[in-house]
């Protein structure tokens, strides 16, 4: 057992963790943030993507202790004052959601991409989400949604 400090979705936490605990388990089981999903447990599918200090990570491949003093964003931290993030809105508007299991990770990868590159080309978008697998949508409407989100963010 070890005590760590971290910030998740703007909130400070002090939590006791086990040495072999993954960040994914910390988020899901300790902090009850179940929006982060586990699809493979080996960093291939991206369903567990979260943003750590501005960079996307597969939370199944990061140990909980590695998150000490870090700032994490999960899907639950995207809404502002009850309003959807423009990326979430674009996913709705473009029909980019089907079963929804890849969606949280996909939205966070999109956020990390757009934070770095506000107006990506379709190819850059495809590359930006290439670590996130989706079995339902064939990705095309997700690419549409991220293009649309780029426009929404410009308007804001």
């Amino acid at each position: 057992m070890k005590e760590i400090k971290l910030k998740v979705n703007h909130k400070d936490y002090h939590v006791a963790i086990e040495e072999d605990m993954r960040l994914l388990d910390l988020l899901r089981n300790r902090l009850n943030l179940t929006g982060t999903k586990e699809g493979c447990g080996e960093g291939e599918c991206g369903a567990c993507t979260v943003i750590m200090d501005g960079i996307t990570v597969n939370s199944c491949m990061v140990m909980a202790f590695q998150a000490e003093n870090r700032e994490i964003f999960t899907i639950e931290g995207l809404e502002k004052g009850g309003r959807l993030d423009p990326i979430q809105q674009a996913f709705l508007d473009e029909g980019a959601v089907q079963c929804g299991f890849c969606t949280p990770g996909m939205v966070l990868s999109a956020k990390a991409l757009l934070d770095k590159n506000p107006k990506p080309t379709r190819e850059e978008i495809r590359e930006g989400i290439s670590g996130n697998l989706c079995r339902c949508t064939g990705y095309n409407k997700i690419v549409d949604a991220i293009e649309k989100a780029s426009e929404y963010r410009k308007e804001e």
Partner: peptide, 17 residues
């Protein structure tokens, strides 16, 4: 029997339809 060796397409593998 894992996603490391059972390959399904990423966004890079699927062109616009």
């Amino acid at each position: 029997n894992k996603l490391t060796n059972y390959l399904i397409p990423t966004a890079m593998d699927v062109p616009d339809l």
